[in-house]
Structure formats: structure tokens, C-alpha cells
Design a protein around this nucleic acid. Sequence first.
DNA 1: TTATCATTTGACACTCATTATCATTAAGCA
DNA 2: TGCTTAATGATAATGAGTGTCAAATGATAA
Lengths: 150, 150
Amino acid sequence: MEQRIDRIKKQLQSQSYKLTPQREATVRVLLEHEDDHLSAEDVYMLVKEKYPEIGLATVYRTLELLTELKVVDKINFGDGVSRYDLRQEGAAHFHHHLVCLECGAVDEIQEDLLGDVEDEVEKRWNFQIKDHRLTFHGICHRCHSEDPSS
Amino acid sequence: MEQRIDRIKKQLQSQSYKLTPQREATVRVLLEHEDDHLSAEDVYMLVKEKYPEIGLATVYRTLELLTELKVVDKINFGDGVSRYDLRQEGAAHFHHHLVCLECGAVDEIQEDLLGDVEDEVEKRWNFQIKDHRLTFHGICHRCHSEDPSS
DNA sequence: TTATCATTTGACACTCATTATCATTAAGCA
DNA sequence: TGCTTAATGATAATGAGTGTCAAATGATAA
Ligand SMILES: [Mn+2]
Ligand SMILES: [Mn+2]
Ligand SMILES: [Zn+2]
Ligand SMILES: [Zn+2]
């Protein structure tokens, strides 16, 4: 945790940004909720518990900054709010998502499954891939096993 | 074109919806811009050229209806507006997108490249896939060839 | 054709996530 | 200690999308 914050601090400083207390508090919330997909408002509420004076605009600005630095990815599941997803440190690719149409759960696939597909796209479409977004919509393992009618 | 509208009409009627003039005008705009990714506002402007009395709310309602019927897919490229993408008739899967970070162009891959990946996800994650969204971000073939520095 | 009634429409008010503004404060540095 | 710029918090503004409701439309039955 502390080491991770330290690396983010160095990343900020290398672009002459400061790791202010507000920014640190925000990063801590993101690290503590690594598996969740928090909206800006969610983050705001959680940061307020530890740092009540923080303003909503600061949270938005920090999340924007972290997105620029590729510390987080900004994603959208179509529910009207952007969500912020911590990237795995050192991971070359953004992880994939499984969205359950039944219960709304969002699970993650950290393993990269797109290697072959990306090779094909680069060759056949002459498109140089920098990043990707892959989401599957369906029925998760929990809903699947609990529903005998499927 | 006319046959396609006719099939959509039948699809509407099978759920006891009517193909009103406003709805037909909206569908025509979508068909005429099959390769584009229009926002609701875009659609509204284009429909107004042929049907100036139409209201914005009606366009939103029609797009919502067509999404329910799976005539279009509602997508989001992270620029703050939803976009509506006509589905290929009879296609089992939603097509993929190539978004160019350089020029902003959005190209399509109609071919399904995810067959093997989906089999693996269904087995290993016990997740029953109903739909998917796949977008690659990178440099398109046009920008790629015109830029000797890459 | 005409009466009936549910559906659809258009205008407009409203919500709410996000962004812009701006005066104030904090941090780094001479 | 001053000086300068970056960062913050409060608040206003923006803008996509939704809710409301009276009026118009369209299908159907008499
Ligand atoms: Mn995730
Ligand atoms: Mn498309
Ligand atoms: Zn589920
Ligand atoms: Zn391009």
C-alpha cells in the first residue's frame, strides 16, 4: 500500500504534479476498493470519511489526473455515471469485465485473452492497437447455478 | 431499404407498437447513416430536415424503443453522449470498433473474432454470455501510413 | 362513417453528472 | 520573509437525458 502510493507520488512528481493530502486521500480510497467500480460520487463519499473538508470538484480533478497518468481507467457501464477502475500495476492491458444482466454484478478477468485477436486485427486491419475495452454481458456463475430454469 | 423498414414495422407490430410517421422518419435516418455512430441530437437534427415538426423527446423515445427491440445498440465512446448503432440484420453478435486516437475515426469490424475467447470465458468463468462489447483504441491505417515518425 | 379509447406525440419543466469560474489557500523557492 | 504558481472548495453553469401532461393520432367497434 505505502509502496504503491510512493510510486504514484513519484509518477506525479515526474510530471511536476504534487501529491497533496487531498490527492493522497483519494488514492487511498481507490486502493482500498481495488475490486470495486466506484463513481466519482462514491469516491467523494468515501474520501469524506477520512478527509471531510474535501470538495467534490477536487475529487473530479484528481480522478481526471489519475486517468491521464493511466493509474486508473475511466469506464462506463451505461448507467449514466463514469466509473474509475484502478489499473493493475505493470499490466500491459486493461482487464476485461463480466456484467451480469440478472444481479448487476461486475466481475473481472485479469488474464489477457485477446492476444491472438489483437495480432489479427493489427495485421488485417492495419490498426496499431494501444488499448482495448472488452465487456461481456450475460449471466454470472452465481445467478446461473441458482436458477434451475436456465 | 423499403424491405428493411417493412421488417422493422412487423417487428414493432408483433409487440403491438405502431410504426408512426415519426418513427419511420427516424428509422430512415438510421438506415441512411448505417456506418455512422449518431448521437440522439445528431439523429434529431437529421430527422428534422425531413420531418421538422418532430420533437426531441420523440427521438429519444424512438431510439429507446429500437434499442429494446435490438434494432440498434446503444454505445458509449466516453465522450459524454450515447450513440446508436444499427445492428446487422440477423447477425448473432454485435460488431467491434476501432477508435483512432489520432483522428477520432471509428471503424467497424463486422467479422466475429471472439468465438474462441467466448468459449473459454463460458467454461472457465462459468459465465453465460449473451452479448459483448469490444473496442480497440489505437492508430488507424490512415494515420498510420501518413505518419513517417511511427 | 362515427364514437371510443389506448397509444403516441410535442412542449417544456426538471434532474443530475460533470465542468467552469473565481476568490482563497497552500507549497516551493529566492 | 516575500513571491509565484499550483491546487482547492464553494458555487454557478452546462447539457444530456427523463418526467409530465394536455393535445393529437390511429386502430377498432358500432
Ligand atoms: Mn474492473
Ligand atoms: Mn458501429
Ligand atoms: Zn448475477
Ligand atoms: Zn486515424
